[in-house]
Design a binder for these strands. Structure first.
Lengths: 185, 185
DNA sequence: TACGGTGATGACAGCGGCTGACATCACGGT
DNA sequence: ACCGTGATGTCAGCCGCTGTCATCACCGTA
């Protein structure tokens, strides 16, 4: 048998979500999370920079997927189409993780400290989208506005998708809100 | 002579800005801030909820000014005019504090922890603006979009205002960017 | 097979953010 | 003269987070 059970990182994430949900974020100590995962507090901090990061582990991969999809869009695609391609990529990654995200949502909503971190995540996605649009040659003002609006659309659609009773299709929700936005302008 | 020198709160804010700027936020301990202000660490935490809050003390007053100005706008003003009235009120409060804000900006920019808190501040202003618009009878979708865009405009204008060499007029910058936005749509 | 490098983990000490509890003491009113 | 009241000090203690060093399975290589 191996010296250590595999998937330490995953075990820490599962333990953290369980405990944060059971007794609250502030009332859970990192030592308790580590103990439930069969590890020590020190090892927790080797995997995650701080107590919050364990809930934000996939942020980088999603940001990369967003940027890659925008870059991969047809060279003659409009700005809107490129943004939509990026949002579609994020939606595709999120879609199969709905149950996990539904457990996560109330924890983040209940803790201002985590809500702040969530805003930071959205800001980093917006910056990545803006940068990917600039790389396509979109002018700065349009890139700024489009990235703001694009992330706002994604966020609103995702909230509705998570709140709905049935499973739903996140990508469809994104497209629907995009269309509604066009009507406003 | 009084037992305590007056203006403890103000002294703590001044000491914090000085020390955070001199040696960095992370490298400054709360005890050092308190000592420079002639107080104890415990007293710091009676005035400010945490080490960051000392840089965000006027947030509530500005949010209230924003909401009040939107509520006070003419009943038949358009949504844009109401938003602009709110932004003007914030600009008027900010204008005389330019020097103080210019000292604050690089500190916040240099510290991710403070950048996160700054995003939270903008989000709270956006929520206040949205809520004030809803109270005027603006429909939900428009109120959401207008609050997002309104705060984005304020933020962009404020950054340019603080970065400029001359003093400038923040309210004029806000109006200019508002006009530019209309051209985009 | 022996052996040295590697990488994940553990053990431990220590700093600093933050809190609760209780004491102190000028001031202002009665 | 006395008694609240409110701002501050003092002290003890938890917990987030970090640096440092030890441990030990695994893996390639001679």
């Amino acid at each position: 048998m191996a010296r250590w059970r595999p998937d330490s990182r995953r075990r820490l994430q599962d333990a953290a979500v369980d405990l944060y949900a059971e007794r609250g974020f502030a009332e859970t100590t990192v030592a308790q999370v580590a103990e439930r995962a069969g590890l020590t507090e020190r090892t927790f901090f080797r995997h995650f920079a701080d107590k919050r990061e364990v809930l934000f582990a996939n942020e980088d991969a999603l940001r990369a997927a967003l940027a890659d999809a925008v870059a991969a869009a047809d060279a003659d695609a409009t700005t809107s189409e490129a943004v939509l391609a990026g949002l579609d990529a994020v939606a595709a990654d999120l879609q199969p993780r709905r149950d996990e995200l539904r457990r996560r949502t109330p924890i983040v909503a209940a803790t201002p400290e985590l809500g702040e971190r969530e805003l930071q995540k959205l800001a980093s996605w917006r910056a990545a989208l803006q940068s990917a649009l600039l790389d396509r040659g979109v002018d700065a003002a349009t890139a700024h506005l489009a990235s703001e609006v694009g992330i706002a659309v994604l966020n609103v659609a995702a909230q509705a998708w998570l709140a709905a009773d049935d499973e739903g299709d996140l990508a469809a929700g994104v497209r629907a809100r995009f269309a509604a936005l066009r009507e406003l302008a």
